[in-house]
């Protein structure tokens, strides 16, 4: 059984569709499925849609469209949803990651916080499939879950002011990907040599909510050859 999401106005030209305050695969799958169905309907007036863990935030053109009319269209989409299974094929993206100490800026902290040897931390991080729960905060930042419990660590007390592009980091039950250099408070476990946000391309964004990701460990030599 799927929970019916709640719908309410957000600002004077927004709509917030939200599910209960939980982070889990099932809820996020419902969010992504509904978001794709809404996108498929091309509801007139909708300009933007921000997909998050348990919410969809819509921005619409309030100059020409009324809130109530868009909500009616949204309700039609929600009611037509007969099954909760995700009928959209999820992309699987492999991201090569070098876990060398040159890039794993928080290696020592992670070892002491988890009490695990580095090899085991790497193996735990790279031997599973993650789902992209949401993107945003800053361009190209992707929130992935869920981490094995043994790797759960808190965020840094004081965020770094600049994290290099391509950094892979962990915090709580999540692992994240910094596509562009940005400030950030997550613990850095490695770096990928690939450009996740190719701003020169027509479709610059590889990671979208609903995509699946695996991290593949590469050596420092392989990383350097990539460049």
């Amino acid at each position: 059984m799927s929970e019916t999401p709640s719908i309410k106005p957000y600002g004077d030209s927004g709509i917030l569709i939200s599910w209960p305050q939980v982070i889990d695969d099932k809820t996020n799958e419902e969010v992504v499925t509904l978001a794709k169905q809404i996108e498929g309907q091309v509801i007139s007036g909708i300009n933007e849609m921000i997909i998050a863990y348990q919410s969809i935030c819509i921005q619409f053109d309030s100059l020409v469209c009324d809130y109530n009319i868009i909500v009616q269209e949204l309700l039609k989409v929600i009611e037509s949803e007969t099954s909760t299974t995700n009928e959209f094929e999820n992309k699987l993206i492999e991201i090569p990651v070098c876990y060398d100490s040159e890039f794993a800026l928080d290696r020592e902290y992670l070892k002491s916080a988890t009490g695990l040897p580095w090899e085991e931390i790497v193996s735990l991080h790279s031997n599973q499939t993650y789902s992209v729960y949401m993107t945003g905060f800053t361009p190209g930042f992707a929130y992935l879950g869920t981490l094995p419990e043994t790797l759960e660590v808190p965020r840094k007390d004081t965020p770094r002011t600049q994290i290099p592009a391509g950094s892979i980091a962990i915090a709580g039950k999540q692992t994240g990907v910094y596509s562009l250099p940005s400030p950030g408070g997550w613990q850095i476990i490695g770096r990928t040599p690939i450009e996740l946000l190719d701003l020169s391309s027509d479709s610059p964004f590889n990671l979208e909510p609903g995509s699946n990701v695996v991290f593949k460990e590469i050596s420092l030599e392989e990383f350097k050859k990539w460049e």
């Binding site: 600002g11 030209s13 917030l16 939200s18 863990y53 919410s55 935030c57 929130y143």
Partner: peptide, 26 residues
């Protein structure tokens, strides 16, 4: 739980001093 932000939103951090999201908002 992290959720979408639109321009004009007033966020309330733990300090109790609000932040109004403007043109280049997160």
């Amino acid at each position: 739980i992290s959720s979408g932000i639109l321009k004009g939103t007033i966020q309330l951090p733990a300090s109790g001093n609000p932040i109004i999201m403007t043109a280049d908002h997160q």
